[in-house]
Design a binder for these strands. Sequence first.
DNA 1: GATATTAATAATGTCGACATTCTGCGGGAG
DNA 2: CTCCCGCAGAATGTCGACATTATTAATATC
Lengths: 222, 222
Amino acid sequence: MASPPQKTYDIYATLPAQIAVRIGQGIVENEFRPGQKLREVDLAAAFGVSRASVREALRIVEREGLVTILPQRGAQVTSLSVDEVQDIFEIRAHLMGLACHRLVRALPADKTAELERLLEALQRALDDGDDYARASLAISEFCVRHAGSRRLADLILSFGRQTARYTRLSLSTSERRRQSSTNWSKLVKAVIAGDASDAERTARQLVLDTRDTALQLLIQSS
Amino acid sequence: MASPPQKTYDIYATLPAQIAVRIGQGIVENEFRPGQKLREVDLAAAFGVSRASVREALRIVEREGLVTILPQRGAQVTSLSVDEVQDIFEIRAHLMGLACHRLVRALPADKTAELERLLEALQRALDDGDDYARASLAISEFCVRHAGSRRLADLILSFGRQTARYTRLSLSTSERRRQSSTNWSKLVKAVIAGDASDAERTARQLVLDTRDTALQLLIQSS
DNA sequence: GATATTAATAATGTCGACATTCTGCGGGAG
DNA sequence: CTCCCGCAGAATGTCGACATTATTAATATC
């Protein structure tokens, strides 16, 4: 099956889209800090493109909620108040519940093995915070992407990226990682058992637990 | 209480933001049809601004989901498949449930009278489809904006705008308007009674009923 | 006559320059 | 000393032009 000369529509073809990805990565990976100003001239120089391209890239990243653009005042990395963090987690919890409810019916039988593999990988990563965060993101992305709604998946993952730093924070203790993996285990069991209501409830609680831990650590450190 | 000379941050100050609003209105009010191509040069000429401003405006409207931008191919009014319409209504139903659950605790006591007024206005508008749609939007916006989360409100209203034409379609028969107003009545009652679970369930069902009617009419007409 | 190729047209992509607005610093009045 | 005012400097806002890519229509070939 040689690849036919079919037209591939590369979403990341245009310059601004590429720049947007790099800016978004920089924010999620904490290279750019919350509240930091993102000057168009600096970014243009750093990426070797014109201001117009940077400007459009910033609009794209704004769409994901990672940067905030104020008229006449430029762009800055979105800085969330404690209330807003709580808010995002709560909305995401409900959407994650909906996604996992749908996942029970939408997941093809031949994909359950992959889900179990991701769960095992998660449990093998219990020792290290960063590794666990990555494995957690992987299984989360799997569930969300197989729930049968591109829109819902993008929404949930977008909220996840906006609060990535707080999720990492909550997974910094091994105790929390064990609690999290227990939740994931329950969720996978419910999904495979075909219990949609249980999956929805468990998924929601899983996110809310993350929120509670993160908020507790936030208040404690301030 | 004369208004002090405080700095007002007008979100709609910049040209692209103003253009974005006008384009969005044009789409929601069915002046621009789904799938219609939105050429930058045409819009620039129509609004008397440069292409750069139109370009940025289109990015803003894309953020609301009302237009879809494809690389090298320009912008077009987002055209939703039946599955996608169903999808959006379902997500909105869950978010509306969450919003109304929160509304029960967040609504100040001195605002319940306004909610009842909006319900009465809704019932007075039962005779006309357009009037009812407006009244329905008004009470919906009231509930959502008083749920204590700007983000949640924007999300729900954004989804509402994306499917505005289908909501109007579903409210075109007086039978459906009566069913809708009954649902709203139950919702308002639950909110004022302070029953958050009931409010959540009723709100969700209210949106799902709209979805079912719209889909039925869509299938029927095709 | 239908299909494939190619040239002409028209759209978007990208850029640099100029206009406007914000920001921070310094000086003067109270 | 504090506060207000205004003036550089720097950032964003807006524009028109050129480069690149998609679309269309005409042509040639099978």
